[in-house]
Amino acid sequence: MTREAGGTRVRRPPAERRAEILRIAMETFADRGYQSASLAEIADRVGLTQAGVLHYFSSKAGLLTGVLDLRDSTDIEELGNERPQGLAFLRHLVETTRRNAEREGIVRLYTVLAAESVTAEHPAQDYFRDRYQGLLTLVVEALDEAQAQGEVGPDVDPGTTARVIVAIMDGLQLQWLLEPGSVDMAKATEAAIVRLIGRDLPPTTRPFPLSPAP
Rank of each mutant, 00 (worst) to 15 (best):
L178E: 15
G86Y: 10
R32E: 14
R45P: 11
R103E: 12
V139N: 05
A146I: 04
E102Y: 11
F57N: 12
L113P: 03
G80F: 02
A191Q: 13
T137V: 00
P158I: 12
V164T: 03
R199S: 12
L64W: 01
L64V: 00
L143W: 04
V139W: 00
S58V: 12
D31H: 07
A142F: 08
T8D: 13
A15P: 01
T161I: 02
A148H: 05
D155G: 06
W176Q: 08
I197A: 04
I42R: 11
G47L: 03
V166R: 10
P203S: 03
H122R: 11
A186G: 13
R195F: 12
V156T: 13
E179M: 13
V67S: 09
R83D: 03
A192G: 13
Y127L: 04
S58P: 06
V53W: 00
A25Q: 09
A162K: 08
S73F: 03
L210N: 02
T160I: 02
A120S: 12
E82F: 08
E82H: 07
A40M: 14
T65C: 00
A188N: 09
V152R: 06
D31R: 15
R99K: 11
W176K: 08
S38L: 04
H92Q: 05
I168P: 00
T74N: 08
S58A: 14
E151C: 01
P84R: 13
E116N: 00
A30K: 13
I168D: 06
T97V: 00
D184I: 11
E95W: 05
Y56S: 10
Y56I: 00
L70K: 09
